[in-house]
Amino acid sequence: MVQALELKALRKTYGSGLEALKGIDLSVRQGDFFALLGPNGAGKSTTLGIVSGLVNKTSGSVKIFGFDMDTHPVDAKSRLGVVPQEFNFNQFEKVFDIVVTQAGYYGIPARIASASAEKYLRKLGLWEKRDSAARLLSGGMKRRLMIARALVHEPALLILDEPTAGVDIELRRSMWEFMNELNAHGTTIILTTHYLEEAEALCRNIAIIDKGVILENTSKKALLGKLNKETYVIDVVTLPEVMPVLPGAEFTVDDEQNLVVTIDASINLNRVFAVLSAHDLVVRSMRTRSNRLEELFVEILGRDAVGSQTS
């Protein structure tokens, strides 16, 4: 089966000498909801910039649905929609015109473009603002405008670069629903985000990039399976005078007077509850301290940093 996106030995060295990508290979299968994660400066934006045609690669190849960006750019680009991190539309143009004009760049006639623009502006709650100048929209509306613009030509592959940055929780949730709906209808989605709970909630496969190298590229399930430790915050009625003891688990108390337990992946929670019961501790509630992907992300990047220092 043809991959939605296939990068081979992709390399980018900027004029300053900075080697942003060190020959990465990456495949995203059709219909996937894929996360590309990494800290600032890891190479995410460079990778997506090359795929989008905004950055010149130094070497390597990019294929979109089997079409090489160098030899078949029209076939490749017409299957791609891009929602960038920064606002990149004419702030003085009307919302409707921005979306219809983008469709025109794809060779879509005005009548069809107008219908498609209306469809996505309505879906994203911007139809009432269609005659407003883009600069008058709120930050969340501007992000949704960029999504509508990226979808107006019905791309098979959608790249979302930090789509929910600076968006309130309610809107973020509604955008998640919209992305899931798009993916369910067959659109392959590649997402970059700093909200790791977003990647954990939405994506099936995840790649982690740092310093221009892909450190992990696997399914979310397999990735989370690598998590060695997990930390839970337990709200107990009364804190114990003596900390419970359990091999493979470490109990502490945090600043908010909660009981905190960090356990190895091999320990199941029943054993933790058994120890709590043995100490007559009454549990009111329990939650993970950070999301699992976030813990793993920090662990992988930490491992890489140590590896870099020792190698």
Partner: peptide
Amino acid sequence: GMKFQRSVEELLVSPI
């Protein structure tokens, strides 16, 4: 102006 506002990217991502 398009370069300054980065809306030139609308053209660059398209197959035009």
